[in-house]
Write a protein that binds this DNA or RNA. Structure first.
Lengths: 192, 192
DNA sequence: CCTACCGATCGGTAGG
DNA sequence: CCTACCGATCGGTAGG
């Protein structure tokens, strides 16, 4: 891992834990055993660092969408599993993607919004496909997509990979509940 | 509304929009047509303001729990409706309750965590009651509660009271999807 | 990558 | 509630 990647990883950790504004360039430098000013040999600005972390997270989420195959139920299960896996494996970056992006200013802010929109569009298509195939029974595709994204996104707030719940267990349970919410039968019976 | 309440309301707006650390005491003073130092005639510290906003939001959410009556399905519907109503009516405070509380430091931080835990416990009891009554079919009450809270909490990120979706429509649709996710039949048929 | 520094701004206080 | 100020810290730069 080159110096630049190291810096981005540490920045992701600090931004996600303390927040972007509460993390100073000197905090970041200290965590890298550097002097404050030395960072600017590697980066252009603090804000550029934030954007780069957002880009990395967006890339991971986008890869999940690109790997989906099969019928709508299979796609939804893989989407849930993949989304939760990215959160588990890339918790700092995912957290920044979900939150700290708001602190970017206009030139960068637009890009972050576009990256998030692109992902949400991809999720919407999965829902839409299921509705068109008659597999999902929902009144409003947009609202069902927001519901799905809500359930998935908030997990970064409480899920910890080293906690009592394995990623497999979480994915299985969430996929089951979400499929039922979407009115799909797909092998789910709702019994314990 | 006395001066103190005005200050808290404006602080809630600014903290929720820009974030706690990105909001300076002088920003807040300017929004109130005051000089920076004058604020300290009314408040003890910036952090105390943040805690107070968190307390106000917690109070609103807690009132929702206390107003629940009837069978488990009725309680869950009222919980969904009430939770979303607080978000719609108190968006800035709710946003601070969901996020900015993390920037409190230990003496205050513990109180904020306790307030959040208390609410989540109340939500868990609603789920538990439904499971014990045999109305909800879920494998893991804790996980189902987190799922429910996830779907509800994230709405503050996208729902806007002046948007295309009325609070009634949102509540109805969310309650329906959540009841299905929890394996309840309760008058829901899943058809459009 | 370091030293030494820039102007700006931070939360907060004294004294009125 | 204002004026004037405190020390500390901010993001960033020059020169090496």
């Amino acid at each position: 891992m080159d110096r630049r990647s190291q810096i981005l990883t540490v920045a992701g950790h600090l931004f996600s834990q303390r927040g972007y504004h509460a993390t100073s360039i000197r905090d970041l430098a200290r965590a890298l055993n550097l002097q404050g000013g030395s960072l600017y040999a590697h980066i252009a600005s603090k804000e550029e660092l934030l954007l780069e972390v957002v880009r990395q997270a967006a890339q991971k989420f986008q890869e999940v969408l690109e790997g989906l195959t099969g019928d709508p139920v299979a796609k939804l299960k893989a989407l849930v599993r993949g989304h939760l896996r990215v959160i588990a494996e890339e918790l700092p970056r995912a957290t920044v993607f979900f939150h700290e992006w708001k602190h970017l200013s206009p030139p960068y802010l637009e890009e972050a919004k576009a990256l998030r929109r692109r992902y949400e569009e991809g999720v919407r298509k999965v829902v839409e496909e299921g509705v068109e195939a008659g597999v999902f029974q929902v009144e409003d595709v947009r609202l069902a997509t927001l519901f799905l994204l809500s359930a998935l996104n908030w997990t970064y707030q409480w899920y910890r990979p080293d906690g009592p719940l394995s990623l497999e267990e979480l994915s299985e349970a969430y996929a089951g509940m979400l499929l039922r919410a979407l009115g799909a039968e797909g092998g789910q019976d709702g019994e314990a």
